[in-house]
Computed example of a mutant assay.
Amino acid sequence: MVDEICVGLIGYGMAARTFHVPIIQAVPQLRLTKVVTRHQDPSLDRDPSVEVVQDAATLLQDEAIDLVVIATPNRSHFDLASQSLLANKHVVVEKPFTTSSAQAQQLIDLARGQNRLISVHHNRRWDGDFQTVKQLLGTNLLGRLVEYEAHYDRFRNFLRPNAWREEAGEGSGILFDLGSHLIDQAQVLFGLPQMVTADLRVQRDFAQAIDNFDLTLHYDGLKVILKGGMLVRGPEPHFTLHGTAGSFVKYGMDPQEEALKRGLTPTEPGWGEEPKGRWGTLNTQIDGLHVEGQVETLAGSYQAYYQNVADAIAGRAELAVKPEESRDTIRIIELAMQSNEQKCTLPLSV
């Protein structure tokens, strides 16, 4: 059994500061000991237990580090994950896993050969509203589900300077950035689709990377629509579900991201709880009677991701976010790009 797992973090940008460090530090079994960053940050100065180093090689040479977290630009994920596995470290990679499904499979094979764990940071499986949708689908309140639609929208009508996500090139754009979350969630609920249809666009002036996507995942008797855009100013439903007995509509995003950006942590009372005004609405019939009302949103728990990783390393639990699932997410993204280019619906083969 492993009592304490020493963690090394490669990269200290927004994702690392917001989504990784405070969550890692909220899991008792994990101890962040080293961070690779070329830019000194005052927040690191305040924590003398964390050593700042200038390069990944220095971190990987530290035999005390058990788990390496990679929070760097997408195009570097494959190389850094490979180096970490070859150094006999367990690995967590920020989503998206890699920029190609072939690279993802290579990492899966390497991790298996090294007897190391590798997982992708699909923390939005632990969004409270997604957990609520998952619970709702475990009931018969909607009847047989026929349509599921999920949005991940923003309004940013300008390009951020020096932002690698906005640059042209492999792994850039919001299909990889935001779409990977929605695809992963759809896999959790419904498994792999039979076919994929995609419409991908560059809508903003001077944009170089995809900033709008509209995916349809085809299942037997079920249509799954996944959408995201950077020019969506008004509120669109985050989740819309229609079934043979009723519908469920939910506006607003999980509150954990905004709480983390304000400097709050999962140790705060009421963490992940959503105000009643943002709960979703169920409209259905039960025993022939019309029922309409709000459904309380379950509390979100981003710390559950890292708690599961710690438990899996210690042999106490099965890994929740399996690398094969994250590979399949990349394969669906590849197929979406091919579908958009060919203007057709394509069968999925993984």
Rank of each mutant, 00 (worst) to 15 (best):
E149K: 10
V92H: 08
E166T: 08
L335Q: 03
L145V: 12
D129P: 15
G280T: 11
T98Y: 08
Q342M: 11
L142T: 00
Q54M: 10
G270D: 05
R144W: 10
S301V: 15
I174A: 02
L44W: 08
V321A: 13
G243S: 02
L80R: 01
A299C: 05
G229R: 02
V224S: 06
Q135K: 07
D62P: 10
L348W: 10
R165S: 07
P48V: 00
H77L: 12
G173P: 00
V69A: 12
I313C: 06
R331N: 15
Q114C: 14
T33M: 15
H20W: 02
P269W: 08
V36Q: 00
H238V: 14
M230D: 12
N162F: 13
I23T: 11
L44F: 07
D109S: 13
V27Q: 05
L142R: 00
S349K: 11
Q303W: 12
Q131Y: 12
S82I: 09
A304W: 02
Y251F: 07
D220A: 13
G277T: 15
L142D: 01
V21A: 14
P28C: 00
V53T: 06
S349V: 08
A15S: 13
L142N: 01
D62S: 06
V232D: 15
L32D: 00
A314C: 01
F19I: 10
T329R: 12
Q106D: 09
S301A: 07
